[in-house]
Design a protein around this nucleic acid. Structure first.
Length: 367
DNA sequence: AATTCGGGGCG
DNA sequence: CGCCCAGAATT
């Protein structure tokens, strides 16, 4: 059981703050969400940055803000358009929750992002980290914003050997931040800790010789910076065999399906597909055609196997066998007919973009 | 407390 | 190919 107050008893807080913040103000990266302190933009950037690297986020952030520059514009947008702007970023519930929350801000807070922990924490998709990030960065309020970077950096600086994968560990680090955070410039302090984690105090080989707070770092003085933080391993993703059909007709149209509003890849579009199995008395192609008949009410002649797509999620691995099929009947309303141009307006998960790539976007699909 | 939610980049 | 990453919601 780690006692934070003991760890901080003779820690030089003021020196640590100034060394850290001076370095940040000198070395901080020029990122698009740092051009001003607009709470909406800070919010959007923090949601995008959840479990996602800065380099990945930059182009999405710029395009998203250009398309939805304000609370109002995002609140009024249709969800299809919002999901399209998020296409390829992953964790799609982030943006659906963001739009829900933005509508709440418009209706209940007059379009002003609230500046109290209580009100912010009630918004959909705003958890402990994002709440603290918005309060400190946009409103300069001294609240902790503890993410993976901060836990790694503080584990080393204070020599904390708790498992940072455990949910309760975050509270320990929040306790430390409440004591460490600069009351004069909480915004720079919180950003500096994350920036240090991203640029210097990296996971595998930290650049301690370049570190502005090296002289305050317990792990460095003990030579154990490579052994921290302690983080238990996640379990392996589970393999699933899938089969998907690229359905088209003689007029160059495609037939696509909208996924359910909950669960994996919620509300995204896809080529009709289903899980298949090998122990069954029918092959993948037959199982897929049975699914299409049951689900969409059409008999379809599928081609031989046209290719295989692999896609890895955090908890699943899809191996998708791809078939083509020419539609000759009218399916039910669960299957939507679109032109190639319309297809491109819909948000598809990356797994299905790989399928599109297989037939090179040709209509009808060649191969 | 454990699981479910995506995707890309790196050694 | 395993590991990591500016997490939150659900169970």
């Amino acid at each position: 059981m780690t006692n934070i107050h003991e760890k901080l008893y003779d820690f030089p807080i003021a020196d640590f703050q100034s060394d850290l913040i001076d370095w940040f103000l000198r070395e901080k990266r020029d990122l698009p969400w740092r051009k001003d302190q607009d709470p909406y933009k800070v919010w959007v950037s923090e949601i995008m940055l959840q479990q996602t690297r800065v380099d990945t986020v930059i182009p999405y952030f710029n395009a998203f803000i250009a398309k939805f520059p304000s609370i109002e514009s995002l609140a009024e947008a249709n969800e299809e358009e919002v999901l399209k702007a998020w296409e390829g970023l992953g964790y799609y519930s982030r943006v659906r929750n963001l739009q829900t929350a933005v509508k709440e801000v418009k209706e209940s807070y007059g379009g002003i992002v609230p500046n109290t922990p209580e009100e912010l924490g009630k918004l959909k998709g705003v958890g402990p980290y994002t709440k603290g990030a918005i309060l400190s960065i946009a409103y300069n309020i001294p609240e902790p914003a503890v993410d993976g970077n901060v836990m790694r950096v503080l584990s080393r600086i204070l020599s904390i050997w708790e498992d940072i994968a455990k949910p309760k560990s975050r509270k320990l680090f929040e306790t430390a931040i409440y004591e460490l955070i600069s009351k004069e410039d909480p915004s720079s302090f919180n950003q500096a800790l994350m920036e240090l984690g991203a640029l210097i105090c990296t996971p595998t080989s930290p650049s301690c010789l370049l570190c502005p707070v090296r002289e305050h770092c317990a792990a460095f003085s003990e030579g154990v910076q490579q052994e921290l933080p302690i983080k238990s391993k996640k379990k392996k993703p589970k393999p699933l065999q899938m089969a998907a059909a690229v359905l088209y007709d003689e007029n160059g149209n495609y037939y696509i399906h909208k996924r359910p509003a909950t669960g994996l890849l919620a509300n995204l579009w896809e080529h009709p597909n289903t899980e298949v199995n090998r122990s069954y008395d029918k092959n993948y192609r037959e199982q897929l055609s049975d699914y299409i008949k049951d689900e969409f009410g059409i008999e379809i002649e599928l081609t031989d196997l046209k290719g295989t797509v692999e896609h890895v999620f955090s908890h699943l691995i899809w191996t998708i066998s791809i078939y083509f099929g020419k539609v000759k009947q009218t399916p039910n309303e669960k299957l939507i007919k679109v032109t190639k141009q319309q297809l491109e307006q819909h948000a598809f998960p990356v797994s299905h973009q790989k399928i599109t790539k297989l037939y090179n976007g040709d209509s009808p699909p060649l191969l």
